[in-house]
Computed example of a mutant assay.
Amino acid sequence: MNGKTAPSTRRVAVVTGATGGIGQALVRHMIARDYSVILLSRQTGRDMPGVTAITCDLTDTGSIHQAASTIMKDAPRIDVLVHCAGVISPQNVGQLDSTTIARQIAVDLTAPVELTNYLLPAMGRGGHIVFVNSMAAIFPLAGSSVYTAAKFGLRGFARALEQELRPRRIQVSSIYPASVNTPMLSREMESGGSIYNFIDPPQDPDITAKRIMQCCERSSREVFSSVFDKAFTHACLFSMKLLNLSLPTMRFLGRRGYRAYRRRQPPQDMG
């Protein structure tokens, strides 16, 4: 023995939004599969085996750069980068405020672009970048135009990046979850969020986390919750007429689903 420590064979994953509902479930699955996880968050939580937490404000490019520098110093090889962070603040155009616009664009679009740019030199052949996008990247949401614009932009960035990195054998994937039952969804609806979230019952975060985990370990470009979701949303992209004809039915299904969702919620403690 020469006294040197053998390099770790564990796959290294960097995850944003790891303290959210989907992100927490994803980190649990990664730990169970023996990943070494580096999570970025504004809030530092309890230490967990196999997890390194780095404080990072995704609305601040300086903070992103500092976090990326720390990662590159401590983990010179990155196998998986998952952009799971997201924020939505429903507001109608004409009533938008600059702070809300800037925050959504920063977290939902600028931060993934910046972080990918900083960390890409640490990724080699066999690496995988996963963008947790939204159905809003395909299906425009009235009342959430800024979020929709950011997610459309993120889809475009991912598609272009995939072409750039194909010669380097680095995979780029985007996942488009259906509505997920998280605190983010509750906050969205309290602010006047889209009723289309409830056309189907919101999924448990663990279901989406498992799909992301599968995405991290398979060769895939765009992953949807169902074949119907993929086919219908893409059809609406090509035909505004189809979109407009579908809206009344979708609103009806969404309102019915939302009423059912509200009935299932536990009563509020009035004490």
Results as ranks from 00 to 15, higher is better:
252 F>N: 09
2 N>C: 13
257 G>R: 00
93 V>W: 14
1 M>A: 14
65 H>S: 08
75 A>H: 15
41 S>V: 07
25 A>M: 11
134 S>K: 08
209 A>E: 02
51 V>F: 08
238 F>K: 15
147 Y>E: 13
117 N>M: 03
185 L>Q: 05
38 I>F: 05
133 N>C: 07
55 T>H: 12
34 D>P: 13
156 G>I: 00
253 L>C: 11
48 M>Q: 14
29 H>Q: 15
88 I>M: 14
42 R>W: 03
79 D>I: 07
186 S>A: 13
220 S>G: 02
169 R>E: 09
50 G>T: 01
7 P>Y: 14
33 R>L: 14
256 R>H: 04
19 T>Q: 15
135 M>V: 09
73 K>I: 09
246 S>E: 01
168 R>Q: 06
226 S>M: 03
208 T>L: 15
22 I>A: 07
139 F>L: 15
106 A>K: 11
88 I>V: 11
14 V>H: 02
154 L>P: 00
223 V>E: 09
270 M>C: 10
60 D>M: 09
58 L>C: 03
231 A>N: 03
180 V>W: 08
266 P>A: 14
214 Q>S: 14
201 P>D: 02
195 I>L: 14
183 P>T: 01
2 N>P: 13
21 G>T: 02
224 F>S: 04
217 E>G: 09
102 A>K: 14
105 I>P: 00
191 S>R: 07
246 S>I: 03
109 L>Q: 00
271 G>E: 06
38 I>S: 00
270 M>F: 07
68 A>Q: 01
134 S>F: 00
56 C>M: 07
205 P>V: 01
231 A>E: 09
117 N>K: 08
211 R>I: 08
203 Q>R: 14
250 M>P: 11
68 A>C: 02
105 I>N: 00
171 Q>V: 03
140 P>C: 10
118 Y>Q: 15
154 L>I: 06
189 M>A: 10
267 P>I: 01
16 T>K: 09
45 G>Q: 11
22 I>P: 01
255 R>A: 15
19 T>C: 02
30 M>A: 03
150 A>G: 05
191 S>Y: 04
253 L>G: 05
60 D>K: 07
86 G>L: 08
271 G>R: 08
147 Y>L: 14
116 T>L: 01
25 A>C: 12
101 I>L: 13
63 S>H: 03
44 T>M: 13
265 Q>V: 10
124 G>N: 08
130 V>W: 04
267 P>G: 05
176 Y>V: 07
155 R>T: 11
221 R>D: 04
13 A>P: 01
129 I>H: 06
11 R>I: 11
215 C>H: 03
239 S>G: 06
164 E>Y: 09
49 P>M: 14
139 F>H: 06
96 L>Q: 12
64 I>W: 00
29 H>W: 13
173 S>N: 01
240 M>A: 03
194 S>Q: 12
162 E>K: 04
143 G>W: 02
218 R>I: 01
201 P>M: 09
239 S>C: 07
203 Q>F: 00
36 S>P: 04
150 A>C: 06
95 Q>H: 12
72 M>S: 13
61 T>D: 04
175 I>Y: 09
124 G>Q: 12
15 V>D: 07
94 G>V: 04
195 I>S: 05
169 R>H: 02
222 E>D: 12
187 R>E: 13
271 G>T: 13
248 P>G: 11
251 R>Q: 12
19 T>D: 13
187 R>H: 10
196 Y>T: 04
210 K>P: 04
151 K>V: 05
80 V>Q: 05
38 I>Q: 02
166 R>N: 03
229 D>P: 00
84 C>E: 04
235 A>S: 11
